[in-house]
Amino acid sequence: MAQASVAETRQSSWWHRNQQQLTPWLFLAPGILFFLFYVIFPIFQSFNLSLYEWDGLGQAEYVGLYNYEELYWDDAFYTSLKNNVIWLLLYLLAIPAGLFIALFLNQTVTGIRLYKSLFFFPFVISQVVVGLVFTWFYDPTFGILNVLLGAVGLPPLNVLGDENWVTVGIIVAGLWPQTAYCMILYLTGLNAVDPEQIEAGRLDGAKGWRMLWYIIVPQLRPATFIAFVVTIIGALRSFDLISVMTNGGPFGASRVLSFYMFEVALSEYGFRMGYGAAIAVVLFLIMLAFIAYFLWSMYKEEKAR
């Protein structure tokens, strides 16, 4: 009995000594387990699946790097990759657009709450709704776009039916809610801007663009970092707008890697899960490269301070 009592006392004292360090980890444990099971494990599973030829039902056949070799000769893959690059370049316009809208909404003017609600609205509606709205907007028969073009004497334009315009048209639709998201990030960041630095800048004669570039923008680095990461991920995983607006058409001209992955794995190409996983791995590595670059840049900046 005495030995048991001593052991219990030691155990109790160890818990009390380490309680502060262990308690946060106990609260984090469920989230970490979910993250490992639903994010990290599927990543490694996708790498493994990309080495097999599998239809999702029968016996998987190991083919090594054959799926990646087939990607190298796949014209549809390069079309999807090119469209992803276009998405990435044009989607980044949401960041400066969101910043300037946030600067406008950060002022105290009449009706500013109404303006904030109007600019915030695209962020809270579904991407499917955004896709439908812009599909009607681009419609060559009754869409508002062609009404406006006709009003200035220009011929009608079938944006979603033209191989040269379809990707740009979908990106414009995606920029609407993405700009609203960046605006919210910058509005939050502007609330944390040090007014003393702004006042010091004014005393030094900084105003307009100089004030923005040298005083305000450096203090918005955390918001800019998040905006870049979220925008790049959004551009590379774009799927829902393409599915709603064109379903990859016309003639596959609006495909991106995420949509092409869906097509080959779960659609008309015969349920090629291994080939779809290979596309997913390529997309993941591209995302990882961009995110790693921004994390490394942020780390160097913080270390230099």
Rank of each mutant, 00 (worst) to 15 (best):
G143E: 01
I43G: 05
F37L: 15
V256M: 12
T135I: 04
S267N: 07
W15L: 14
G161R: 00
Q197F: 15
P122G: 04
A97F: 11
I242E: 07
V129P: 03
P156Y: 06
G201Y: 10
R237S: 07
F290N: 11
Q178E: 09
A235E: 06
N84R: 02
R272M: 03
T188C: 11
Y38G: 10
Y52N: 12
V130D: 03
Q127D: 11
Y62W: 13
S13Q: 13
F121Q: 04
W15P: 07
A192S: 15
F104I: 11
A304K: 14
I171R: 01
L118E: 06
N158G: 05
W296I: 07
Q197C: 15
G169S: 04
L285W: 00
I216T: 14
P156R: 11
L154R: 09
G58W: 01
D55M: 00
M298N: 13
M211A: 12
A7H: 08
Q197L: 15
F34D: 06
L65I: 11
L187Y: 12
F34C: 14
N83S: 04
A277E: 03
W296N: 11
L241K: 01
F37K: 11
Q20P: 01
Y68V: 07
V281H: 03
T179D: 08
S46H: 02
N84G: 01
I233V: 14
L149Y: 03
Q19N: 11
I184K: 10
R221K: 13
L160A: 05
W25C: 09
R272P: 01
E263T: 06
S12G: 15
D240H: 00
Y66T: 15
R10Y: 08
L160S: 04
A292G: 08
A206S: 14
W14F: 14
F35K: 06
Q59N: 09
D204K: 09
G58K: 09
L220S: 10
I86G: 02
E268F: 02
L114S: 13
G189H: 10
V39R: 14
F119H: 06
F34M: 15
L26Q: 00
G131P: 03
F284G: 00
S243H: 05
A277I: 03
T108E: 15
I95N: 02
R202L: 13
G131V: 00
Q178G: 03
L154G: 05
A60V: 03
L57H: 08
L88R: 02
F134V: 02
E263W: 01
F44Q: 09
S254Q: 01
T110P: 05
I198L: 15
V230D: 10
F35P: 05
Q3I: 11
Y181E: 04
P155K: 08
W14H: 13
L148P: 05
F121K: 06
G189I: 10
V282I: 14
I86R: 04
Q21H: 06
S80L: 00
V229S: 10
I232W: 02
I171L: 08
W213Q: 14
F294N: 09
A253E: 08
T135L: 12
T23P: 02
I198N: 11
L154S: 07
L88N: 03
E8C: 06
F142K: 08
R272V: 00
